[in-house]
Design a protein around this nucleic acid. Structure first.
Ligand SMILES: [Mn+2]
Ligand SMILES: [Mn+2]
Ligand SMILES: [Mn+2]
Ligand SMILES: [Mn+2]
Lengths: 218, 218
DNA sequence: TAATAAATTTAGACTAATCTAAAAATTTAT
DNA sequence: ATAAATTTTTAGATTAGTCTAAATTTATTA
């Protein structure tokens, strides 16, 4: 049985490795976990001695199959709880992340599987992120960053990169929720901002930073 | 913000004080918490320095108003989660206690209040225990121990003292679930066991120990 | 390639929570 | 009212997780 702390490290390693497509560095983990590099270095040795990670001093760390399974199960739990909070308890998508960070550590495979069933086996969480099934298999979806679209192209908003409250509240303000149809009207070279047509009606302009955090299905 | 451990101590003190109607002793707490008296003694000083308990060395401990509020909130969360697990996820009443022990430590007042609403503001948990409202007020119910009933008297089973799996599974086997009508047919002086008529049909005999764990509403 | 900078690890210290063993206080029994 | 038994507290050690500061390794740059 792992501590919540160890579980959080595994999740951080999973996240970083996936994002950067390489072993997670001590510094990257310390930034993600908001701890010092010294603490991370310490923990990496412990995780490796438990067979959860492959670790070579100074060379970064990756998850073993065992570590990967645990990280995936955590993500499954996190996202299912987020669905529960939004669908059943009427929380908004910007309120659920911190709560799910706690709920994901509840130890019970039976609980998460029943929750899954109760929610109707959802495939995506409130931020459009895929929910792995009980075997750890993710549903894959063809999607592109909004910034990759050419002028005139359009697509449906299916996901977001970030899940910080401030970003999600900004999207709400702009009328950008999952499912809306977006068409690229103009691109401004100066700051890479983009003018969009939302649901064939309203026009808005968003920054490049926002673009890079939106996933569309063409 | 308190640790789960500190919260569990507060709950234990609450439970013991209520049961014995006096300050909780170090030994009683160590038994309840399955730790050593030394650990308890240590913790009691810490809880008192945080203003959560009144503590005099060698004299036992009681909760302050602040400590009582926290303990009551924990019980509220525990019991609401038990209702959720049984009503929504189809767990049985003997499966939910350990899960609720974890879930009660999730930190969010908003979450528990929304859960309460989602469940239809239940007044009792799956074991018949009252659920305090958001202000910590318990619904009170007139109830008696089965062992107090005379021959010929009857009542509805509304609650159980214990919530161990083994006890609850035993009750299931005997057809004793909340709501059944019980009539005392005979009392055997030899071992204080009792013969009952269940729902006007079946006859069963149960031990004195079981009797003392069943609450009836006449 | 050698010096400098950056990243990483180690050393040593701290806190929370736990334990065992020993000391002290309280309760019970003679 | 003493002595014995019980309860409780203290002392000292241990483990997980954290930190700062110092040492070491790797990467960058001149
Ligand atoms: Mn999240
Ligand atoms: Mn999410
Ligand atoms: Mn319970
Ligand atoms: Mn209960």
């Amino acid at each position: 049985m792992l501590s919540s702390t160890e579980e959080n490290y595994l999740k951080a390693i999973y996240k970083i490795s996936e994002r950067d497509n390489k072993a997670a560095s001590t510094n990257a983990i310390s930034k993600e976990m908001k701890t010092t590099a010294a603490s991370v270095s310490d923990m990496l040795q412990r995780l490796s001695s438990k067979g959860l990670t492959h670790y070579e001093k100074y060379k970064g760390v990756t998850l073993t199959e065992k570590g990967n399974k645990i990280a995936t199960a955590l993500i499954r739990k996190h996202r299912l709880w987020e669905v529960f909070l939004v669908e059943k308890l009427d929380f908004t998508w910007d309120e659920v992340h911190e709560l799910a960070e706690q709920l994901e550590h509840i130890q019970s495979i039976e609980l998460v599987n029943r929750l899954d069933k109760f929610l109707g086996n959802p495939k995506f969480d409130p931020h459009g992120d895929p929910i792995p099934n009980a075997d750890g298999i993710f549903t894959h979806r063809r999607q592109v960053e909004l910034s990759e679209l050419e002028i005139g192209e359009s697509g449906a908003l299916v996901g977001v990169q970030e899940d910080s409250s401030t970003f999600l509240q900004y999207l709400d303000k702009m009328g950008l929720k999952l499912g809306v149809e977006l068409k690229v009207l103009e691109k401004f070279e100066f700051d890479s901002s983009v003018k969009l047509l939302v649901n064939h009606t309203e026009q808005i302009t968003i920054s490049n930073k926002v673009c890079k955090n939106l996933f569309l299905k063409k």
